[in-house]
């Protein structure tokens, strides 16, 4: 079972690289914000996955909860700022 979890974690890292391509490539700044949101959601899943691989789940879940809330606040702040600055 650990090998499959390892494979799944590796696959998620590949998906994160795909999102990174969109963050770099994205014409407007909103693509970048969207890409970053996607990457943070994936990294939350990756955290919990690594927790189950190392059999120390309770520590990793607290980290992912904190990171999820952090990402929420950050994304809302960026969205609120971009609303008035315009899509230059």
């Amino acid at each position: 079972m650990r090998e499959t979890l390892l494979f799944v974690a590796f696959f998620i890292v590949i998906l994160i690289v795909v999102y990174l391509y969109r963050v770099i490539q994205g014409p407007t700044v909103f693509d970048r914000v969207l890409g970053l949101n996607g990457i943070s959601t994936k990294s939350i899943i990756l955290l919990v996955l690594i927790g189950t691989i190392y059999e120390r789940v309770d520590m990793f879940i607290d980290i992912s909860t904190g990171y999820a809330l952090l990402n929420l606040v950050g994304s809302l702040a960026v969205a609120k700022y971009l609303e008035h600055r315009g899509s230059a």
Binding site: F30, N37, N71
Partner: peptide, 19 residues
């Protein structure tokens, strides 16, 4: 909760800023 709120916020910001 988080996924929906964030995507809503970013798209509304995109719309508001005239994209």
């Amino acid at each position: 909760f988080l996924g929906t709120v964030i995507s809503h916020a970013t798209v509304r910001a995109a719309l508001r800023s005239g994209l």
